[in-house]
Amino acid sequence: MNIGKTLFGAALLLFAASPAMAAEKVYVYNWTEYIPQAVIDDFTKETGIEVVYTTYDSNETMYAKVKLAQQDGYDVVVPSTYFVSKMSREGLLQALDHSQLPNAKALDAKMLDKPFDRGNVYSVPFMWGSTGIGVNAKEIDPATVTSWKDLWNPAYKGKVLLQDDLREVFHMALKLQGKSSNTTDPKEIEAAYGLLKELMPNVLLFNSDSPRLPYLAGEVSIGMIWNGEAWMAAEENEDIRYIYPKEGANLWVDSFVIPKSARNVKNGHAFINYMLKAEVAAQCVAQNGYATTVLAALPLLDEKVRTSPTIFPPPEIVAAGEFQLDVGDALATYQKYWELLRAGN
């Protein structure tokens, strides 16, 4: 440990000694395929702040990294939905200085003041979306797919893609059984496991880093997908369709937060504020196909993007969907059945 510190100290001295390294920085840790590179470059051009950008493909990975970095951590992180409450409860986040975030004034009220951060003390919502069903219209008639239950159709043996995310997968089964996807009742979780076990022969793969790729490669023709991934896939191949299951899609919202361990708090605020600019938010929507909270961005979008139900679902679909909440200790129960599900032969 001491050797590490000494080496680190020596490295710091080296850095301090060279004037070229004195540039302002901001360490951003974000989901993969989320912010276009052009946006990041523009930010650096406009502010002179260099962006050190790293990505993750699950909240769990992000959480573990932030938790382990007691100091010199990331300046901006983008947890989903309930991870904000979990992280703030554990003292990992710092309260945002809203005076440094003038662009956060005109956000979509639907996504503000949520149970996971009342009053938006720690977080500003950036993009929101859903997990629904993706279908390749060349292989399967999209009109025949209306429910999560359709993934269980024996005709789709070895053809289905599931997200590599236990909460999302259990969401389907719990919704089909008329339960809340935030249940902490072990019996309900076990019953959902029973249903999912019947689905396993249909499952070809689990993928959460870029689920659209197996659809585009023709490897799966039906399965779960995020709306934004479905949007991006449809840009390349219009046969890929997105369907909101009638039991309700899984809804989530990704928010900007600043961890307690941040090094460059001011630059972190500057980055968040920049991302909430109307033109920038519009650029992000056009690329990644998720709905923005920045209402001022909507008029800037193409007609096709603005009116796409894949990106901006009608209100009744939002009402039918369910946001994920923290399930606390019940996560261990979910995890146990998740492992059993994938240990079978």
Partner: peptide, 15 residues
């Protein structure tokens, strides 16, 4: 290559 459908000990440790 296996589609993450079934876990190996390595996956288990990671999870």
């Amino acid at each position: 290559l296996g589609g993450a459908r079934q876990l190996l000990v390595g996956n288990l440790i990671q999870q």
